[in-house]
Amino acid sequence: MTSSDFQIRPILPAEHDALGELTLRTYLDGELLIGGLDDPYAPNLRDVAGRAASATVLVAVDERAGANEEGPALLGGVTLAFHGSPMAQLAGPGEAEVRMLAVDPAAQGRGVGSALAVACVERARAEPGVKRVVLCSQEAMTTAHRLYGRLGFEREPGLDWYPLPGVRLWAFRLEL
């Protein structure tokens, strides 16, 4: 998938560390990690190689902005896990799950998050037997909730869960 100023594609192994740091930085900047860098979820956000071993990891890259020896500029990333993957927390049979969607704060407002989410939906739709896409989001992530709503996701309160006491994750679903 491409837009006029960035491309969505599978992650390359050389980009694992950069996406891990971008994801962690985005969660920290958004005050989404209660324990800051010591939050027990921080290592999961950094472990892109682990995610890529059992799920699909997509990135948004700006090929023009990164025309240097370091490669294209990484704008964001997302993980798509199918039922049975160790990365799937909510996905049951016939479902795919969107996880760890993160956009570099400097790239927000360019449609990167929407493009990453749409790419996940398209990949899920192409997978035989997948009938629904699910995801969870912190209550405070209102910008993300608006994005999910624009893409047709609906709240699924019956799937809400608490990874830690006092931290409720809202669930959303999209019927394919």
Rank of each mutant, 00 (worst) to 15 (best):
A18T: 12
L19T: 08
L19S: 07
G20I: 02
E21N: 07
E21K: 06
E21S: 09
E21L: 13
L22Y: 02
T23R: 11
T23G: 02
T23D: 02
L24W: 08
R25C: 05
T26R: 02
T26Q: 05
T26V: 04
Y27K: 09
Y27F: 15
Y27L: 06
L28F: 09
L28Q: 07
D29P: 01
E31C: 09
L32W: 00
G35L: 10
G36W: 13
L37Y: 09
D39W: 10
D39R: 12
Y41T: 11
Y41I: 11
A42Y: 05
P43C: 10
N44A: 08
N44V: 03
L45E: 05
R46Y: 10
V48G: 04
A49Y: 04
A49V: 02
G50Q: 09
A52Q: 12
A52N: 13
S54G: 14
V57S: 07
V57Q: 09
L58G: 05
V59F: 03
A60C: 12
V61A: 13
D62K: 10
D62N: 15
D62P: 11
D62W: 11
E63V: 14
E63Y: 00
R64Y: 00
R64E: 14
R64N: 05
G66L: 06
A67K: 12
A67H: 13
N68G: 15
E69S: 15
G71L: 11
G71D: 12
G71C: 13
P72S: 14
G76P: 08
G76N: 05
L80V: 08
A81S: 15
F82K: 01
H83P: 00
G84Y: 11
P86L: 11
M87A: 14
A88L: 06
A88S: 11
Q89V: 03
L90A: 06
G92Y: 03
G94S: 12
G94V: 08
G94W: 09
E95S: 04
E97N: 08
E97V: 02
E97H: 05
V98M: 12
V98P: 01
R99L: 15
M100L: 14
L101D: 01
A102W: 00
D104R: 08
D104K: 07
D104F: 06
P105A: 01
A107N: 06
Q108L: 04
Q108K: 15
G109R: 10
R110F: 01
G111Q: 06
G113Q: 04
S114L: 01
A115Y: 13
A115N: 12
A117N: 04
A117M: 14
V118G: 02
A119C: 12
C120E: 03
C120P: 05
V121L: 12
V121E: 07
V121N: 08
E122K: 09
P128E: 11
G129D: 08
L135W: 06
S137H: 03
Q138P: 02
A140H: 04
M141Q: 06
M141R: 00
T143S: 04
T143R: 08
T143G: 07
H145R: 13
H145M: 10
L147P: 01
Y148Q: 05
G149H: 02
G149P: 05
R150P: 00
R150T: 13
L151T: 04
